[in-house]
């Protein structure tokens, strides 16, 4: 019963969140968290459960985002149609890609996805007649309030977590894990590995593409540098998955929360705390510190990658038991 009650309680809290917290800034952060829950879940399905590490989540994200934007700018159709279509187009990209690249194993598949990411970024940059190149595409936001976006993002995030939960507890999920653990053994047991890897990739791509389309509608502006970014999307997706917990249902949710918080702490200089501190103390040093901290967010990501891989390889959720033990032990020692 605990399995149902805890997430349900969490969901209710999330539904009530924008009604209680009316500050647009925190609502914006929560929308980002929910967006990353969806992307992280998508990443987790193909990488965590199926073991085919996706280094190029931004390829699907960007394709979804551009689908929505192009619908508006070229066909004059509402960018909201991009939401269903973005997922579909991402799947259409994933399909031939998987067909070609699923013969590659381990790190080589990861590299191929990285190449896919780069190719799409170049295409979006070069093909100016279609995508406006580096100028980017502007999409007018439909709602002024953040609340509608919040609920759409919540639906997407909850949907993707439920999808992961359902898929991984079905027969399909066991096939995925068997492919991750030993592909040859899985093949010899009669599992069509390419077929199931394809299903996994298409589901992932669909979720990530949907998130991309929602991003366009919410942010109102996209350019190749943002939506096909290796650091800000692809690596972030991996971090969300790994920090939270690889191949756990709620890992990406946890990871999304932690990562968006970390990103924001650096970007805003500790939620503006450093600026206040600088004003209060009147030290000129604080201004420099603030400047450096806001510049250091990619550096912090890099250090986090190294730290997490070395000490927390299965994430906060995956290593929860050892983490709790360490923390308790530590407490006892200090007491």
């Amino acid at each position: 019963m605990k399995r149902v009650y805890v997430p349900l309680a969490l969901l209710i809290v999330l539904i009530l969140f924008p009604l209680v917290v009316t500050d647009a800034y925190y609502q914006h952060l929560m929308i980002l968290v929910l967006l990353w829950v969806a992307i992280g879940s998508g990443w987790n399905l193909i990488s965590g459960y199926t073991g085919q590490v996706l280094f190029g989540a931004a390829a699907f994200f960007g394709v979804g985002a551009y689908t929505a934007a192009l619908l508006l700018s070229k066909l004059d159709v509402s960018a909201w149609w991009g939401l269903p279509l973005g997922g579909l187009v991402a799947v259409l990209i994933a399909f031939p890609f998987g067909w070609i690249c699923f013969r590659l194993r381990g790190p080589y598949f990861a590299l191929a996805t990285l190449a896919l990411n780069e190719i799409f970024r170049h295409i979006a940059t070069i093909w100016e007649s279609l995508t406006e190149g580096m100028v980017g595409i502007l999409v007018m936001q439909t709602f002024i309030s953040k609340i509608p976006y919040y609920y759409i993002a919540l639906a997407l995030a909850a949907g993707s977590v439920i999808m992961i939960d359902v898929v991984t507890r079905s027969r399909l999920g066991y096939y995925f894990v068997s492919i991750r653990e030993d592909q040859d053994a899985a093949e010899s047991m009669g599992i069509n590995t390419v077929y199931y890897k394809m299903i996994s990739l298409c589901l992932s791509a669909c979720v990530i593409g949907l998130a991309g389309a929602l991003y366009t509608n919410y942010m109102g502006f996209i350019d190749p540098k943002v939506v096909f970014s290796l650091h800000d999307i692809s690596i972030m997706a991996i971090l969300v998955g790994i920090v939270g917990g690889v191949s756990t249902v709620y890992g990406p949710a946890m990871g999304a929360f932690i990562m968006v918080a970390i990103q924001e702490v650096f970007r805003s200089g500790g939620f503006g705390l450093l600026v206040k501190l600088g004003k209060a103390t009147g030290w000129p040093v604080m201004a420099t510190v603030t400047k450096y901290v806001s510049e250091a967010h990619v550096l912090s990501f890099g250090l986090l990658v190294i730290f997490v891989i070395l000490y927390l390889p299965n994430g906060v959720v995956g290593d929860w038991s050892t983490l709790r033990k360490t923390l308790l032990f530590w407490k006892r020692e200090t007491a």
Partner: peptide, 18 residues
């Protein structure tokens, strides 16, 4: 000990970023 064997590749990505 970890689930994903690609940890080392990811580690090099982290080193590159740093």
């Amino acid at each position: 000990e970890s689930i994903l064997p690609e940890n080392q590749v990811l580690m090099t990505v982290g080193i590159g970023m740093v």
